[in-house]
Design a protein around this nucleic acid. Sequence first.
RNA 1: GCUCAAGUGGCGGAAUUGGUAGACGCGCUGGAUUCAAAAUCCAGUUCUUUCGGGAGUGUGGGUUCGAUUCCCACCUUGAGUACCA
Length: 985
Amino acid sequence: MQYNHLEIEKKWQKFWAENQTFKASNQSDKPKYYVLDMFPYPSGAGLHVGHPLGYIASDIYARYKRHKGFNVLHPQGYDSFGLPAEQYAIQTGQHPAKTTEVNIATYRKQLDKIGFSFDWSKEVRTSSPEYYKWTQWIFIQLFNSWYNINTDKAEDISTLISIFENEGNTTVKAVCDEEIIAFSAEEWKAFSSTQKEEILLQYRLTFLSDTEVNWCPALGTVLANDEIVNGVSERGGHPVVRKKMTQWSMRISAYAQRLLDGLQKIDWPQPLKDSQTNWIGRSQGAMVSFNVDGHDAKIDVFTTRPDTIFGVSFMTLAPEHELVSQIVTDDQRKIVEEYQQATAKRSERDRMADVKTISGAFTGAYAIHPFSGEKIQIWIGDYVLASYGTGAVMAVPCGDQRDYDFAKHFGIEIPNIFEGVDISEAAHADKEGTVIANSDFLTGLKYKKALKLSIYEMEKRGFGYGKINYRLRDAVFSRQRYWGEPFPVYYKEGMPQMIDAEYLPIVLPEVEKYLPTEDGKPPLGNAEVWAWDTVNNKVVSNDLIDNKTVFPLELNTMPGWAGSSWYFNRYMDAKNSEEFASKEALNYWKEIDLYIGGSEHATGHLLYARFWQKFLFDKNIVPVDEFAKKLINQGMILGTSAFVYKATFFVKNGCAIDKSNDDVIENIPTIFVSKNLFNSDDEFETVVKNYLLDKKLLNPNFADLVMITKSEIHADVSLVNASDELDIEGFKNHALNADYKNAEFILEEGVYKVGREVEKMSKSKYNVVNPDAICEEYGADSLRLFEMFLGPLEQAKPWKTSGISGVSSFLKKLWKLYFNGDKFEVSDAEPTKDELKALHKTIKKVEADIENFSFNTSVSTFMIAVNELTSLKCNKRAILEPLAILVSPYAPHIAEELWSLLGNTASISTASFPIFEPKHLVESAKNYPISFNGKMRFTLELPLDLSKEEIEKTVMAHEKTIAQLDGRTPKKVIIVPGKIVNIVG
RNA sequence: GCUCAAGUGGCGGAAUUGGUAGACGCGCUGGAUUCAAAAUCCAGUUCUUUCGGGAGUGUGGGUUCGAUUCCCACCUUGAGUACCA
């Protein structure tokens, strides 16, 4: 019987589906193991070979863990809300739910072909109402919570209300908005309910506020910081501007420290942890208050170097700082306002692109140095960002390069407060070993002591205190989009009200157009049935809005990260309609043991999900506060683009000829030159010219008038074989190459060779490889093996389809081991020593490899094992049965088929992993490398039980040693028994 | 600029605590089979060589009997980040 991958793979995929082989039970005596992939957004383009890389790795691990006796949860689903479906809807009018459905079907078909051991009974889709019901529910939980700094956790809002009722808000330590008015218990009780609502909103973990947001006019929506790359939108690259809008936000800043601390206990890649640490941006320092001379106003600044406070020679405010207009003097007002206008016009992008130009303006006002009482100038400058810290800095030019440059530029004094440091050229930013000078009570102190003492003194004198600042901003949670989760929120007297959880989900309404309304409201503003009836508790027509019992609903929707911030919990109990997930399921599965996905989610999904998990943990909804124990970032698979080299013709200008330029080159066809025929542009020109003259396509009289240049054109990679030869007919007839139908090709040795280059896999580069085609031609088992064989999981690596023949022929050889000609035939005879050695070597290596996620090397190991067993002509059941199990995580279809041919009726996934027995690898002799001065010159087979002295005697007497030494006496002979012999001298 | 990761044949890559560099595969070369091709099988394939050998893991240095592996400096590439006070 021939190995027929098409038949076998179809058969077993059907078997797995029908028997629900991979359905995980929420109760088991076995230890649990939860393996998860970051779920995909189902795009219209479908999967290319880069997408399944992580899925294959996690599938191998999941299958391996089953063999090792674990109860494995390995689900899959779809992150199915999102921009592309909506934009497609805007263009075509098709409902995003429909296109999403179609895309999911395509994804599912593609995934099924690869033979994953997913438990599809637990599939989730973020866009299905059964799922987003619980996303809305979590939102309500956040709304009904505040962050208590004393207990360092989120608590129900009722505990806050009872504090207000008993003590007012002056004793409360909460993470909340800045500048909340103080009130007593009596005052609280006297507030109207709207006033109370307004105050509570300042404490809730999700809250409405007027915030400066990143508004993207082209997309018509607000973007989060992590959705902006280099000042333009991550999707589409559209410009982004700052705009004030009323938005829902998430108080993630409450969790800044815990998000930082939690990184210590999870096994995630260091670069990913680094970027989260960076994003959170903790800095320790002090808040210092400066009085403004002649005003009531104070300027608060945050500094990490309070020890340098005596080096302050001026202050700089962000041009947008609210105090500027108050304190500016009349004679400076014009200059300051001009400067403010000039910076307002500059986009964030311009400001970022140009960091070298120093600009600013003097306000005319002075601040009072809190220690010395000296007057210091107050400037504004755009190097100070309104969005960080307090939007103001105390400038210490001798210790900060930006302050230094600013001072130099405007001729401001630069006092030196460092002992023995030259600051004539640049600021001195080093902390270690620095001794403070000219600083009153800090003089003579080292950095660390000065830091402590300065804060102590500030606190004592009451104008400053030690503080930890975070870069992490509260996350904007509203999106002006259609295709997202609706908020379970309606508005009564302008204040948001939560819909009772029992009436969830609030289902996305139908709209006619997916664009914003004409008056600039989000797309849900187009909905006609989008009002909340508080009597009947249902969504009703907008016509019924009376603001008494029927109220307007929220028009924004939630961002893409809402649904993905908790889906891993839902998989544990995906179909539960009563709860988010049952306690039993949550307590059984707890957290993800292995999470695999791309590194691009470092500061988005992975930070928000950790935030929600900690919140849900605080509220006793989930049992652990980190959702993924171990995480691996799979590397990107790049494409290997193919290039053809086209000649382009010009006639030199200014030549006095009778004919028009077009006539000279009119008969010249499109010409492509094979890659190795030229090394330079000049050679390229010569090759083409000779060809034209040879073929009489160019009048020799005009030859000198014609200029030829080379252009590189992407050729579809499917038209190129393993030897980089182009299928010329295929190229000419390719749908996209209609222009080249009559092109001519200058060949080398009868073939056209393309150039190759590694680039990102993309449609426009014609280097996309579709996994379906690979499954069809070589089979899913080959695809799985090859993806792993490409290289280490975490590294980026280029894809070259030609390489797949290696793993494909490996599978054929594996198959042949179990067959005698066309007949399946295994022997029950005792295996030989060598056969056992080959098997156990493989068990040992493959087990270690999988545990280390080194999947590429186990593929090599399989190849070596099969090569060895083939040359041993092994067909023993005692070897081939365990071998099938070893291979099955990687190539499950062929393994199942061989397993059933061996007479087993249950799926191979129920078999135990073979146990490694070291006794089969014990050797009696070693082929010693004999080195001279560390260089291996020859090898010598010696028994392993030889003593050092005996080894030395034998080696020194050997003729090759004598020849190598050439009469010299060695200084030293190093012998490591079982390893090496090294002769020095 | 800063942070991190990585530099090994024509290519993807291997080398467990410092101990035979280049496993395994692609490609290439030669051969067998074939009318021919595909497929399959066998042999070879780091460079260099006067065929004894010699050199060799980005570059230069160091530690060591011995370095792809450890240390220092530099170069290159990739990724992330960017006025963070």
